[in-house]
């Protein structure tokens, strides 16, 4: 009885005690942990900043060199560092050609694989087929390079004729790169397709659509932006791919869009030149950073666009 009364009519003293007891306190340990975790998170931004500074700094040195002019760099089609000629198009042409072949292979194959897996395959078939794509995705690119040079090229040469296509050519590199990118395009497209709400699928079937009509006329159009994002990431991956082209597409810069010829891509050029013992600070050395900066910027823009599309796409169905 008496305890009840006392709790109802708490004395000032008691109230103060409680107030002190419940008062927010500074937990130094907690704050320290939170700050260090934040710093670790921020560190990832420093990686990007470091890439930009490192590439930008050396690229500036390159462009500051009297032998080099910006106009020549962006317009000339000759890349011969010994002769002081730095025209990026000689390397860009090979990058564009191999990437275009890769995309032409990977997009139709990857998209139809995704449609099959998401709209046709029953769970048992899926459980068998999906891991195969995952294995393809996990094979190191240098192994793909071996495959391109020692399997695909000999076959191409026997089909097309050894006089028309060389031991090093962009076609084999591009085709194998397409196979390498296929799983990426397929898995991103599959994500986009399965994000299309089931109600749309049901609506199409309830109107009497066949699976083909439902998937190509309703579901694929509904997932189109997600598929677009997949294609863009695929392009970015193809542009940045190094080992396949370094092994299979040739080691001389060559301004050409003919896939049967050998030509060196931007990435393969960086790998070949820096693989030797190039002295630091020379124009040749700095030119590699200028190429890498271009690669970085192009892939960065592609990745940003793709991410933006994916975010927009997700909002659409939420």
């Amino acid at each position: 009885m008496s305890t009840e009364i006392s709790s109802l009519t708490a004395t000032n003293q008691e109230r103060e005690n409680w107030a002190t007891h419940l008062k927010r306190r500074v937990r130094w340990g907690e704050s320290a942990i939170e700050s260090s975790l934040f710093l670790v998170g921020v560190l990832t931004i420093f990686v990007t900043i470091a890439i930009t500074i490192v590439l930008g700094d050396q690229a500036l040195l390159f462009f500051a060199d009297p032998e080099v002019t910006l106009v020549e760099f962006f317009t000339s089609t000759k890349w011969q560092p010994q002769a002081g000629q730095f025209g990026i198009w000689a390397l860009v042409s090979a990058t564009l050609t191999t990437s275009a072949i890769a995309i032409l292979v990977a997009v139709p194959l990857g998209l139809s694989a995704a449609i099959y897996l998401s709209e046709y395959a029953n769970p048992r078939v899926r459980a068998v087929l999906k891991p195969i794509l995952e294995i393809l995705a996990g094979i190191p690119t240098v192994v793909y390079g071996y495959f391109a040079l020692l399997f695909v090229t000999p076959i191409l040469r026997s089909i097309i004729g050894p006089d028309k296509i060389g031991v090093y050519n962009m076609l084999a590199a591009g085709l194998v790169m397409g196979i390498m990118i296929l799983p990426l395009i397929s898995s991103m497209s599959e994500d986009a397709l399965s994000a299309v709400p089931n109600s749309l699928r049901e609506a199409a079937y309830a109107m009497g659509a066949t699976p083909f009509e439902a998937s190509t006329q309703v579901i694929v159009p509904a997932a189109l932006s997600g598929i677009g994002a997949a294609v863009i990431v695929g392009i970015s991956r193809a542009v940045g791919e190094t080992m396949i082209v370094a092994v299979a597409s040739g080691a001389t810069s060559n301004f050409t869009f003919n896939p049967l010829e050998a030509a060196e891509t931007m990435t393969a050029h960086i790998a070949r030149i820096s693989g030797g013992d190039l002295p630091y600070g020379t124009v040749d050395y700095n030119s590699l950073f200028a190429i890498a900066l271009m690669l970085f910027l192009v892939t960065l823009v592609l990745n940003l666009i793709s991410q933006w599309i994916v975010t927009k796409f997700r909002e659409q169905y939420e």
Partner: peptide, 25 residues
């Protein structure tokens, strides 16, 4: 035919929503 619990028009125009089913049939 069927009408579902939640409205589920196709992400197409109003016109195409109706024309599509007719066309495939």
């Amino acid at each position: 035919g069927m009408v579902f619990q939640k409205p589920n028009p196709f992400p197409k125009s109003i016109y195409e929503n109706i024309a599509w089913g007719a066309r495939i049939n």
